[in-house]
């Protein structure tokens, strides 16, 4: 079957856009893993709650950008509380205990959302509905904005980690927790901060993506699976690797769905995952260790 090249371009664009959202979710996940060694199974639920929180702010203010910022802040606070109450006491224990803890939290949050918001899916309207002509198609500007905003948030995170006072605290703590403490860095606070930042990023992606997919209490499940694949393919804890992996996998899926149904195209990401684990288990874009 010959694919018209316009369709190819459109699918590539879609792939990059989905890839950027996925990169945003995965960045938070890989940040938390890289620094705290915590595999956060509740990340998808923070993303889901972020989207719901977006609807709440949207209802009261009617402003999408306030919804985005308000939701990120609220979920950051929620993340901080979760970290202090559920994860801080487990510091230094078997990593399995934190996996169980975050899994438990994810169940609680999912059922909370079901109880609070009910089983009927909700929606956030796009902040603007402008479109531009792309070949025979009308392509929504909002989708482009999603990709750009996701990229901007990831860039901001990177700058914060590279130059910010707290970024240096975080990196020092990652490398040597004990020595960081001896240098006066309040390590427990650093962990809470990292979890809050990761949560805020999950929430922001939830709000940004909600106009395209609709909101329900189980929406975190789908995204978390994909985010985990991205994080593993990108190299656990490797921020740049995650971004590249997210775009790479989304592009592959977008291209695959030219030939097969989108549901079948998902298989591509599993194939990449399995190949990565077989060939380069430390990450697809990480130089092979000597």
């Amino acid at each position: 079957m010959v694919i018209p090249w316009e369709l190819l371009v459109i699918q590539l664009l879609n792939g990059v856009i989905i890839g950027m959202i996925l990169a945003l979710v995965a960045s938070g996940l890989t940040l938390i893993f890289g620094i705290m060694d915590v595999v956060n199974f509740a990340h998808g639920e923070l993303y889901m709650l972020g989207a719901y929180m977006g609807t709440t702010v949207m209802l009261t203010t009617g402003n999408f950008w306030l919804a985005l910022g308000g939701s990120a802040l609220t979920i950051a606070a929620l993340g901080a509380v979760v970290q202090v109450t559920a994860l801080r006491p487990l510091l230094g224990r078997d990593p399995l205990t934190t996996i169980l803890a975050t899994f438990g939290i994810s169940l609680v949050l999912q059922n909370y959302a079901l109880w609070q918001y009910g089983p009927v899916a909700r929606k956030i309207d796009e902040p603007f509905t402008g479109q531009f002509a792309l070949f025979h198609l009308q392509f929504p500007w909002y989708r482009v904005v999603i990709a750009l905003l996701s990229a901007a948030i990831i860039l901001a995170l990177w700058l914060f980690m590279k130059y910010g006072k707290y970024g240096i605290w975080i990196r020092a703590t990652t490398q040597d927790r004990v020595m960081a403490a001896a240098m006066g860095i309040p390590v427990p606070l650093v962990y809470t901060m990292v979890f809050a930042i990761g949560s805020a990023m999950a929430a922001a992606s939830g709000v940004l993506y909600a106009p395209l997919v609709g909101i329900n209490h189980a929406m975190g499940l789908d995204v978390i699976l994909r985010a985990f694949i991205v994080v593993v393919v990108g190299g656990m804890g490797n921020l740049a690797g995650s971004v590249l992996a997210a775009i790479f996998i989304s592009l592959l899926e977008a291209l695959a769905s030219l030939w097969v149904s989108p549901a079948q195209a998902v298989i591509v990401s599993f194939i990449v995952l399995i190949l990565t684990l077989l060939i380069r288990p430390t990450g697809l874009f990480v130089p092979t260790p000597k």
Binding site: I168, R171, A172, Q175, D176, V178, M179, A180, A181, A182, M183, G184, I185, P186, V187
Partner: peptide, 23 residues
């Protein structure tokens, strides 16, 4: 906690130096 001792004015230079290698 060590970070509070650092704020009190105690600094530590360990045997194995423990500099932050990637910083």
């Amino acid at each position: 906690a060590p970070h509070r001792l650092a704020h009190l004015g105690i600094a530590y230079v360990p045997e194995d130096r423990r500099i932050f290698r990637l910083l």
